[in-house]
């Protein structure tokens, strides 16, 4: 299955991101709860791009590891202001915008692998993977 890249700039793009991720997860054979988890992660992290960076992109990549296990990797990247204190940003309830501060820590709980890189003034990249359980 082909990877897709989605430009994330408007609220409409958040909806497109979550529905594309859901269809991709469904086509790969993820069960309903996992489809919902992945769509929710797409919604949270795409909204962070729109809210904090203005624009960026989502790459959704079906993949398999050396054992032949398959999974869906989602990469959210932007060239926005970056995050000064990543540890703080990963904490439940931490928000610089009066939000609930659940987007990053909650997304981490919804996937199997979660990685965040960010540099002030350069941007942020969040990479997540959810593996397909056999």
């Amino acid at each position: 299955m082909e990877s897709i890249a989605i430009l994330i700039e408007t609220e409409q793009d958040i909806i497109i991101a979550r529905s594309e991720v859901r269809s991709m997860a469904a086509a790969m054979g993820f069960r309903l709860t996992d489809q919902t988890r992945l769509a929710t992660v797409a919604s949270e992290l795409a909204r962070n791009i729109v809210k904090y960076a203005g624009r960026g992109r989502l790459i959704a990549q079906p993949m398999s590891d050396t054992d032949g296990r398959s999974g869906l990797r989602l990469i959210f990247e932007d060239q926005g202001p970056g995050i000064a204190d990543i540890d703080a940003a990963m904490r439940d309830g931490y928000s610089t915008s009066g939000g609930l501060g659940k987007g990053l820590p909650g997304s981490r709980r919804l996937v199997d692998e979660f990685q965040i890189e960010s540099h002030v003034g350069r941007g942020t990249r969040v990479t997540v993977i959810r593996w397909l359980s056999p």
Partner: peptide
Amino acid sequence: MQPAVAITLVELGL
């Protein structure tokens, strides 16, 4: 609320 939505919400921490 669909069960899959409820599960996801709780994991998200809401």
